[in-house]
Design a binder for these strands. Structure first.
Lengths: 282, 282
DNA sequence: TTGCTCCTCACGTCACGTGAGGTGGC
DNA sequence: TTGCTCCTCACGTCACGTGAGGTGGC
């Protein structure tokens, strides 16, 4: 009969751990003194404790371990095989996640090195729901005319009778920066129910449709006027590049606030994106 | 003014999360209605929330994030740099850990494939404290004489007057299996205080010294008689091999129980070991 | 007036670590 | 008799998820 401290020393676990395993039923002492409540273990229990430790080392929860070591021999072997396979997939998953995290940390460090020359943007990845928009798409010959075109199309949309549900946004349909021949879409988030309340005779270029949901949206929010909005684009481009993503759809430029003091403007830039080399397929 | 649900939708976090950030002081709503306790956020708080999310993505705790975004601009940038460096090291550490875990999972799966031909041993890694032993080291010409030699040396040790403190053990001083010329040490864990109580005239080969502590001890416990103890050695050898470890000292064979029914014998085999390619130096 | 949104507790999570306060064993 | 070992509560951990039960807003 071993006292709890002896058992703990043999297996190199804490006494508290042994008490806890007793409590959850993983390893009951072979005898508990009726009067003193002292726990006494048998040497024969050491292999079981070692098994528990080994399985915990592989990443199983105590609950799973309990299932594995309490079921009978035959079942448990096949079961163990299945759970090991699962664990393997899980660990591989975590490995790629940590890899990506590491990449993002390094990017951020790089951002600091060139500190001062550019405001620090926070790149955020998120899922975005599908949303209904009313929009007019066209080609703007020169970037200098974008603002004017934008206001005109905006007016047409407002006058069509749809009900705004969120801010205005632009969709840019070419990848990369261009000064001429911009394929751009002026759009407004609207209440889907208001689509059929459009007035007759509205501009034929006006479309109402659902912007698809995006699983992986890379987003940056820019504060202030639009003069150096391209800093934000530069950041997001470098981010995509160095973290191994590529854009998978038109970029969205959302005007969260575009009234009042330009210093308080808030513009969110969203890139639908996906991992370039999807090594982790299946 | 945004209601909590709007803020949550914009940043793609849960409402509960916003309430929690309020509670811990990370992001207080810019206004709380006196009567209804409704939380109202300003658009200007969105960048702060995005920063929180971005930093959380890098693996920081909310507590750390609080320190980063509440200190003033200058300090926080240098501080962020330091914490990013730390995080980087931490993530790299976790990466190698997960890699090792993956290796152990694969080993275990391999073990199951060859199921039946060998009992499943549980390989456990642990730290072992320094311990005082009394021992006699010698060369046994042939493995068939090991048992006899062992008893003789054991008797000499017992008669020397030292006080046993744990089980008997063997230390094998050559690496790899040998049938002839075994360099072996018969030893007994003893109470250090009893060392100077040794009787005068004890065998001059008898040494009392401290077995060093071992940081990384790879251990397997064998149940039953000693006839197929070499299965355990085979397992531990393969384990060291396929997980990239090499032995760094004499192997210890500890006789936890060697009396009564041989089927109940318990023998622990311990190999001091280290990673072969210590890529993670420093 | 009826849903809808929002509110405040409060418990649960996972595997123990860490006291507090007390009693048997040698 | 004095340390030493062991005992049983019970709180804390981290970042929320998930009800329960209730009230204001449109």
């Amino acid at each position: 009969m071993l006292r709890i401290s002896d058992m703990a020393r043999l297996a190199q676990v804490s006494i508290r751990t042994l008490r806890y395993y007793d409590e959850v039923g993983l390893l009951k002492p072979s005898r508990i003194d009726k009067w003193t409540s002292y726990r006494y273990y048998s040497l024969d229990q050491l292999p079981r404790l070692n098994r528990i430790i080994a399985l915990k080392d592989l990443g199983f929860s105590l609950d799973q371990i309990g299932q594995l070591i309490n079921s009978d021999k035959e079942v448990s072997l096949e079961q163990l095989r299945g759970m090991l396979k699962l664990k393997q997939a899980e660990v591989e998953q975590r490995l790629t996640e940590e890899q990506e995290r590491l990449g993002r940390i390094k990017f951020r460090l790089g951002q600091i090195e060139k500190e001062g020359q550019m405001r620090e943007y926070d790149v955020v990845i998120k899922r975005v729901e599908a949303q209904t928009v009313a929009s007019i798409r066209g080609v703007v010959p020169d970037v200098s005319q974008l603002l004017k075109w934008s206001f005109e199309m905006g007016d047409l949309i407002k006058e069509s009778g749809v009900q705004a549900n969120g801010p205005w946004l632009h969709l840019y349909h070419q990848s990369g920066y261009q000064e001429e021949g911009l394929d751009v879409e002026e759009a407004l988030f609207i209440d889907p129910a208001s689509a059929n309340r459009r007035k007759p005779g509205h501009d034929p270029r006006l479309k109402v449709y659902e912007l698809p949901a995006v699983e992986t949206m890379v987003s940056v929010t820019h504060q202030g006027d639009w003069d150096n909005l391209n800093d934000a684009y530069a950041t997001i481009d470098r981010w995509l590049q160095s973290n191994g993503y590529k854009p998978t759809g038109p970029c969205r430029e959302i005007y969260l606030r575009e009234e009042g003091d330009p210093a308080d403007f808030l513009t969110e830039i969203q890139f639908p994106a996906a991992k370039v080399d999807a090594t982790g397929t299946s």
